[in-house]
Design a protein around this nucleic acid. Structure first.
Lengths: 203, 203
DNA sequence: AGTCAATCATACCAACTGGTTGGAGGCAAT
DNA sequence: ATTGCCTCCAACCAGTTGGTATGATTGACT
């Protein structure tokens, strides 16, 4: 007869899940604790038992969401393939597939883009987390490309670190475009992106 | 002895200017009317005399800000140059120069990126404005490239509309990266971008 | 069975949100 | 000079914000 579930780990997970939806929808600043509490089906007291407040909730969510996401989408694929260009092409294909798999009106860009875009430089300590993610992301791509160059799988004339920024731009930019313009541009963008990556292969 | 300025057009401009700063800093949702009013040095009554409310203020700001900005940064340069690849390279150079000209801690990505990123699909009527801007942007790039192909200044093998999405991704992505990672990546990104555009030239 | 700390809910708060009101100050035409 | 209108302001409103205080319920351990 317990309405009290007494299941702290499940409650915590429900809160983070509800917060997730609020954050990617409205951004970190506009996210409302009351809405998070309501959608999670819990109460404010419960939330404040598990988290010290909004800032703490955001911080913990960032720390538990962004690294695994980056790892799943980029670090792990880059680490397992031995040809970075093949890996990135596959990552891009996956990204498009993931976007298209969600109905347009339910689509929200990846937290790696939306949330990062909504963080202000003065929003310590969130800004630090964002920067770490961004650096990890950039370094992973750059190192994979550099390694590919040593193995003669990537053209020797490019500068790995520079090309990495370029590639990340592509990934972030297409999410915003999909959000604003709809899915129709996705296949064309993908073809262009794959073709560009092919130009990085050795002659 | 009038503290009342009695200058409606100046007051309206002050409000929009103050709103501009609030919007690009916190996004559309988290923007606070009270802060806008305070920074503008006017009162809420005055704001509500000039605008019907927050939604109206945002709408009018969007309509008066985004189109001129898009025109200045993209449409006009694309229209005046007769070689679209030269034009885009110049646009990219300008974009980097503009970013670098602002101290990092005062930098906020262009409204064309940040604000567009903060609009939710269900945020009518803002979503319509965003989509129009995005379509205009995409079409301008695509048509310029297509025209360049006819004049043998752009490689005939590319698909103009597809390459346009690609190019816009680059522009949006680099602003987010600059915001999150700092300016150090900008020169490298620019070199990659220029080199990529060179690959679109006829053999 | 009784204790105890962890978990969660109820009710509440001050501060702030977007929004409203009535009227004061100034300008122009009469 | 008076009238009427536009511009703007101070004070206020109801609702919501993030955040608390306190007590009820629970499971684990004796």
């Amino acid at each position: 007869m317990s309405s009290r579930s007494k299941n702290p780990v499940a409650t915590r997970a429900k809160i983070l899940q509800s917060a997730h939806e609020e954050f990617i929808r409205y951004g970190l600043h506009a996210a409302r604790l009351n809405a998070i509490v309501e959608n999670a089906g819990i109460t404010k007291g419960s939330l404040f038992h598990h988290f010290d407040g909004k800032e703490d909730l955001v911080t913990q969510w960032l720390q538990e969401t962004l690294p695994p996401l980056l790892d799943e989408l980029w670090l792990s694929p880059l680490g397992t393939h031995d040809n970075p260009l093949d890996a990135i092409q596959k990552i891009f294909r996956e990204q498009i597939r993931r976007i298209e798999s969600v109905p347009l009106n339910e689509f929200f860009a990846s937290p790696l883009v939306t949330v990062i875009a909504s963080i202000d430089r003065k929003d310590e300590p969130w800004h630090k987390i964002r920067e770490e993610i961004q650096v990890l992301w950039h370094r992973a791509v750059a190192e994979a490309l550099a390694k590919g160059q040593k193995q003669k799988k990537v053209h020797s004339a490019i500068v790995a670190a520079e090309e990495a920024s370029f590639i990340i731009s592509l990934s972030m930019g297409i999410e915003l475009q999909a959000k604003a313009q709809g899915y129709s541009i996705l296949p064309g963008w993908l073809r262009s992106a794959l073709a560009y990556l092919d130009t990085l292969r050795p002659a």
